Amino acid sequence: MTALARWHVGPWTTRGTRPGETPVPGRQRTTDELNFDVVGLARILGRRLSGRDELQVRLWQNELRPTHTRQCGVHALADPDNARLLHETAQEALAWLDERAPAGYEFVLTDAVELRPLLDPTADVVAVEAAVQLADVPLPAARLATSHVRRSAAGDWYAGDAVCNWSGPHPTADDAVAAVQAARTELAEQLQAAGRDDLAATADRWPAVPVESD
């Protein structure tokens, strides 16, 4: 089993409606569409299916979204047993995803598939985001301290999240990592200043700064 090489905290699918909620056509997936997204996400990330299961996925796709321009949030499987099978398959796909979550994180299904930090300060690995969330106070260093290091198309290195770069360009990955490490040191100091010595003490169990080379 190989952990994900590229990842981000937050939603990994379009948001949808959970069972019992009112659908929002055009903005949120129906429950069946959301379950199909879970199955599709796992396939994109490398989950292999048998030929029979692949055929079933195609049948679900034909019923839920035969064209890319079809409006979301209005389509559901006609057969309740088929919808139940899709739900079960989505749960299997979610379990497959969770097995590949980075240390200190978990995949959960809310109204989307989300990667979240495990909020256990006693764990062997404590995500930096977990310390930030548990502190629940303004921490100026948090944004850079939780950043990943990525290489740009031009060859420079940046530290940032899935949307924005917060530091860089840097000439090497090590320089970008050093910027994040400095922010993590500041974050630990800010946690202490906020009276959260317990969370600052988790710093030696924070994961290494993630570096994505391509």
Rank of each mutant, 00 (worst) to 15 (best):
R52L: 15
N35D: 15
R48M: 12
N82Q: 13
A179W: 00
W12C: 06
P210A: 04
D53R: 01
L4Q: 10
A130M: 02
Q91F: 13
D161L: 09
V57Y: 14
A176L: 01
P207H: 08
R196T: 06
P19Q: 03
A131G: 08
P66I: 05
G10L: 10
E114I: 02
R29A: 12
A78T: 15
N82Y: 03
L49V: 02
A178N: 04
P117I: 11
L118N: 13
G10P: 11
R52M: 12
T185Y: 07
P25T: 06
P11V: 07
L199Q: 05
R196F: 07
P80G: 05
L118Q: 15
V39N: 01
D120K: 08
L77C: 02
A153G: 14
E21M: 07
A178W: 06
A5M: 11
A200S: 04
A5I: 07
S147T: 09
R70Q: 14
A93N: 04
C72V: 13
A76S: 07
A135D: 02
T31A: 14
R58W: 09
V125A: 05
A173C: 03
E63L: 14
Y105V: 09
T2S: 15
A103C: 09
E88N: 10
S167W: 00
D53T: 01
A201S: 14
R143S: 11
V209K: 05
S167Y: 04
A95L: 07
H170S: 00
V128E: 03
